[in-house]
């Protein structure tokens, strides 16, 4: 059992809610994924616009825990203020903390991330920090009060999968008891299965489902991959070898 700040999720697949062709397709995808969490965000709304309220009604109807993010924030102050606004709007102290440091890769600014995480945990937030796979940064985030880590697989929206397998393995091995989620960069279900086989506790997917030709079908495919990967991890995979080892017994083999 994996607890995220004391909560056991119904599924290890976390799903983003952005970029779907329509609200109906988003709803279908969340249902078919059996998502354990959906991520949401905040944006400016003009008086008279009902877009935000309609989206909130749709999300509440899905009856899945929400994880608000601070997407688009580039400074500690922006991220902290956005988190405080999200807590009030969504009624949760969970926050997926993003502080972006570089525009081309949307790479997290680990220095600002640690500072924002410290401020928010002191303010009672339960922080899910979107981070690089940096071991030292992970240590600092845990010291800042984070009880969950969310390393990237690859840049957001790139679909490139797990760019640094060695780094993700090392991170998992260094902090075996910390719930960890691979967030960002996953493109196809096999990437998600791979993350779960490494022992990650969950994956967070958005673009790979939303931009699929059939998002709901892809959501189901991801759900199956996450489940398969988790089962494989629990079942303890064999060691990889550089040379062949015959699987058929050679004892008793005829000499012809």
């Amino acid at each position: 059992m994996t607890l995220f700040y004391g909560t056991e999720l119904t599924s290890r697949l976390m799903l983003g809610t952005a970029q779907y062709p329509s609200p109906e397709i988003l709803s279908d995808a969340v249902r078919r994924a059996g998502a354990g969490v959906v991520t949401v965000s905040l944006r400016r709304e003009a008086a008279g616009s009902r877009a935000g309220q309609a989206f909130w009604a749709l999300i509440r109807g899905l009856d899945v825990p929400v994880l608000p993010n601070t997407a688009g924030c580039h400074t500690v102050r922006e991220a902290v203020t956005t988190a405080q606004m999200a807590r009030e709007v969504f009624g949760t102290d969970w926050i997926k903390l993003e502080v972006i440091g570089e525009s081309d890769t949307l790479q997290p600014d680990m220095f600002a991330l640690v500072e924002a995480a410290r401020i928010l945990t002191e303010d009672g937030f339960k922080v899910f920090p979107y981070m690089t796979e940096d071991l030292v940064g992970a240590e600092r985030l845990l010291r800042a009060g984070c009880e969950v880590l969310m390393p990237w697989g690859a840049p957001i929206g790139s679909g490139k999968g797990l760019n640094n397998l060695f780094g993700l393995r090392a991170l998992r091995a260094h902090f075996p008891d910390v719930p960890m989620v691979v967030d960002a960069g996953i493109g196809v279900p096999s990437h998600a299965a791979q993350a779960m086989e490494l022992g990650y506790d969950a994956v967070l997917i958005n673009t790979a489902v939303a931009k699929a030709g059939n998002p709901a079908e892809m959501a189901r495919a991801f759900a199956m991959a996450v489940e398969a990967g988790r089962m494989a991890y629990i079942a303890d995979p064999m060691e990889e070898r550089d040379m062949a080892v015959p699987s058929t017994p050679v004892i008793g083999q005829a000499v012809l």
Partner: peptide
């Protein structure tokens, strides 16, 4: 003034 929106 911010309102709920889709997010990843």
């Amino acid at each position: 003034i911010l309102a709920p929106m889709q997010g990843g």
